[in-house]
Design a protein around this nucleic acid. Structure first.
Length: 594
RNA sequence: GGUCCGGUAGCUCAGCUGGAUAGAGCAUCAGCCUUCUAAGCUGAGGGUCAUUGGUUCGAAUCCAAUCCGGAUCACCA
């Protein structure tokens, strides 16, 4: 149990004993004591004055004394300033914490709680390569999954690949028109980039054809509908749905190229999935559920045969769920897939990592699922995140104004190499070791950059300004870890019995560090509760910052006494353990040297 | 227009389940490498917490209104 929770419980007990009436931990607030006052934790007394009919001074005295009496091992002294009861925690408490957990890789984590969660993320389209926006999605999804695992959930990572539809046919048509039989192998292009080029080519040609028609006197609207390349694409989609062999063959071939490319990217950035769904398999799902809903009068049919749901009573609009030709729309598939996920995995919670532009869609999805009585409806949770934009505005694949994921990864790794070479600290590394190090640092910088911001906030990425390697960054934290490892390599782990060093007074920075380490548990819980990796990113940065202050102020190897030396080794090991654990939850590796 | 999200230092962001003098990083300036890694540390300057009103002993935090920015409200996905 964390110290804050212990204090909360102790205060509730003490109050109940003292004043013969029930209290809960909601009746008061506990904060960390501000550095300018003496103490570690502060009970804010104002909210208790009415119930206890005491003055702050009197209440503080009584409560403080009672706390010291009931938990003399933990609380050693207190002071009262205005309405604040500042409590000092025994050094022995902190020392014991360090002896117990300093090498505990599970510190802060929870045992399995029996609950199952599915995290759906990534969800790429197979007509273009992955860009910066997808990276935010990937890192978020992966990290949230790991955070939930650490908090005791059984987690399934899933991915729905949008592998069919009009946009896929666009690159297929363009390939037929312009490729002249070219393949990724022949051109030496990564498969997803290769296909993406044809998606851009489609749009270029489409624009030309529309302009041509407009020049001939056709209205813009009509021109957009009549452009031959668009008509051909629509025809191709129909052929695909009819299962026309040559179309299916081309579709399989081109998607195959994309998957080869994606595999490389996913491997590079460390994304993985337990289950991959393909829209080509799921797009027909949900129709049966809609039919059932019609019987239950959840839906209604219009004269033209299309099926709708009326959500105006819930403050939303009417929503189409089945076209007049009986085919399903986006939301129909999603209802089907939600049901299927539940059937296959019997999940307690289903998290969708999807951009905030789909907030409305997800709201509607959940509402419809609930009205239909789909088993997993209440479990649906949309982890909505803000778009990554350029200074010039939104990224658009079809305009070619995107920050390509592969290029960015390469650039980050290159920058890592440049910095490392300039510093010249690892000249004895083999080339394999160097490659690994550059990867660790480059990806660390990039992942941290995207995860340190609250997911729901929109972010603007300026390609002119490179991602930093100093300050509030991944490399800064990795560096702190490497520094600790360096100390440990030099002096080794000295084995001394606990009784030798467990009784000593902590210096302010030593104590501050341990208090920070102790907070890891609550931090993890909060990150899981909020589904927010930035909570971890902020925590591990401040932990590293505190360690670096400690590092310059106090020598470990040349500590004042042998007791101090052993203590500081333990604190350092524990800091390294927590840094490694926290970064791992963000998908960031740590180097032994850098 | 309806709904949702955001507005905190020059820039990027923490802090938001109300608590003591609003914090980091970047950038700027001034210091610190013959002792454990300077991708570091110490310090300085920099604020009408969008605005107004309300609730409260106490508001960046809660409520209301207003202003600004964004998303969305498709027989697209």
């Amino acid at each position: 149990m964390s110290i804050v929770k212990k204090l909360q419980a102790a205060v509730v007990n003490s109050l109940t004993n003292l004043y013969n009436q029930p209290f809960t931990d909601k009746d008061f607030q506990i904060n960390q004591t501000k550095p300018e006052f003496e103490g570690d934790y502060t009970v804010v007394l104002f909210s208790l004055l009415k119930a206890t009919k005491k003055s702050p001074e009197e209440l503080g005295q009584q409560l403080g004394s009672e706390l010291l009496q009931t938990e003399p091992e933990i609380f050693v002294s207190f002071n009262i300033i205005k309405g604040f009861l500042n409590i000092v925690v025994a050094d022995g408490y902190w020392l014991k914490l360090v002896t117990k957990h300093y090498e505990d890789v599970c510190f802060g984590k929870h045992a399995l709680n029996g609950k199952k969660v599915m995290v759906e993320y990534s969800s790429p389209n197979t007509n273009k390569p992955i860009h910066l926006g997808h990276l935010r999605n990937n890192f978020l999804g992966w990290s949230v999954a790991e955070i939930l695992k650490a908090c005791g959930y059984k987690v399934f990572k899933s991915c729905i690949v949008n592998d069919r539809g009009i946009h896929i046919c666009k690159s297929m048509i363009a390939w037929q028109m312009f490729a002249d039989g070219a393949t990724p192998q022949i051109t030496g292009t990564k498969g997803d980039h290769f296909v993406g080029e044809y998606y851009v080519k489609f749009n270029d040609e489409y624009k030309l054809q529309v302009a041509d028609l407009v020049a001939k006197g056709v209205t813009q609207k009509d021109a957009e509908k009549q452009a031959p390349i668009m008509l051909a694409t629509q025809q191709m989609l129909q052929d695909w749905e009819a299962g026309k062999p040559e179309v299916i063959d081309l579709w399989k071939t081109m998607n195959g190229w994309v998957y080869e490319g994606f595999d490389v990217t996913y491997k590079n950035i460390g994304s993985d999935f337990d289950k991959t769904y393909y829209e080509s398999n799921t797009y027909l799902l949900g129709k049966k559920i809609v039919e059932l809903g019609l019987k239950k009068n959840v839906f209604y049919k219009k004269e033209d045969g299309s099926v709708w749901i009326d959500l105006t009573a819930d403050g939303l609009d009417e929503k189409l769920v089945l076209r007049k030709d009986g085919t399903s729309v986006y939301i129909t598939q999603d209802i089907g897939l939600a049901q299927q996920k539940n059937d296959e995995y019997n999940i307690d919670e289903s998290i969708y990592v999807i951009g905030d532009e789909q907030n409305y869609h997800m709201k509607v999805l959940k509402l419809i699922a609930q009205k239909l009585g789909v088993a997993a409806a209440d479990a649906i949770h949309h982890l909505s995140y803000g778009m990554v934009e350029l200074p010039s505005g939104k990224m658009k694949s079809r305009e070619g104004t995107v920050v390509d994921a592969d290029e960015l990864v390469d650039e980050m790794i290159n920058t890592a190499r440049r910095h490392t070479e300039e510093l010249g600290k690892v000249k004895d590394f083999t080339s394999d070791e160097l490659v690994e190090l550059y990867n660790t640092i480059g990806l660390g910088a990039m992942k941290f950059y995207l995860l340190r911001v609250d997911p729901k906030k929109r972010m603007i990425f300026n390609p002119e300004e490179s991602i930093d390697f100093h300050g509030f960054t991944g490399p800064f934290i990795q560096y702190t870890y490497a520094r600790i490892q360096s100390i440990l390599r030099k002096i080794g782990k000295e084995e001394m019995g606990e009784e030798f060093w467990i009784n000593q007074n902590l210096l302010p920075l030593e104590k501050q560090l341990i208090i920070f380490l102790e907070k890891y548990t609550n931090t993890l819980d909060q990150a899981a509760y909020e589904l927010n990796p930035s909570v971890i990113a902020n925590y591990v940065f401040h932990l590293s910052k505190t360690f670096n202050s400690f590092y310059v102020e106090h020598s470990v190897a040349n500590a004042e006494t042998e007791e101090k030396k052993i203590l500081r080794i333990h604190i350092s090991v524990m800091t390294a353990t927590v840094i490694k654990s926290a970064l791992q939850l963000l998908g960031i590796a740590v180097p032994e040297r850098m």
